[in-house]
């Protein structure tokens, strides 16, 4: 059996296994997702979002909430731009040391064991950095 066929079978098994696992896990809950109780909770939640039967003015009808949200959106944009800029600077500083053809391939400078070690370290740190979710 070739790799592509094995991959396709593995993907199928993973798909079936995952859905069976998730649905079985849902069945163990005190109230399943597929129940009338869930429907009632969703209805209540959506009504709350729309401001139906809510005491006082709902947040979306309050001008001061919109001003506060605009301020927060401005801060969010500034943080995103700074974060992506720092990420780009980091990538610019290291990408050459993580390129296989530059470090160990036809463009490798001098001793390949040394540049190979640098390549391994840079690629390892990239894997670690992107493997950890941003919230962690």
């Amino acid at each position: 059996m070739n790799f592509s066929k094995a991959s396709a079978i593995f993907t199928l098994l993973m798909l079936v296994g995952s859905w069976v696992f998730v649905l079985a896990l849902d069945g163990q809950q005190t109230s399943s997702f597929f129940s009338s109780e869930t429907f009632q909770r969703v209805t209540r939640f959506v009504k709350g979002l729309l401001g139906v039967n809510v005491a006082g003015t709902p947040a979306f009808g309050d001008a001061s909430e919109w001003r506060r949200t605009a301020g927060l959106a401005y801060q969010t944009l500034a943080m995103s731009v700074l974060a992506i800029s720092l990420a780009a600077l980091g990538a610019l500083a290291t990408f050459m040391f993580g390129a296989r053809n530059v470090m160990t391939g036809e463009l490798a400078p001098g001793a390949r064991w040394a540049s190979g070690a640098v390549l391994f370290a840079v690629r390892g740190s990239w894997a670690l950095l992107r493997g950890v979710p941003e919230l962690v």
Binding site: V22, D26, Q29, S31, F33, F34, T38
Partner: peptide, 14 residues
């Protein structure tokens, strides 16, 4: 939003 609406169901995560 889903946890608030439907509770801690794994379907909410999906």
């Amino acid at each position: 939003l889903f946890v608030a609406a439907v509770g801690l169901s794994p379907i909410a995560a999906v």
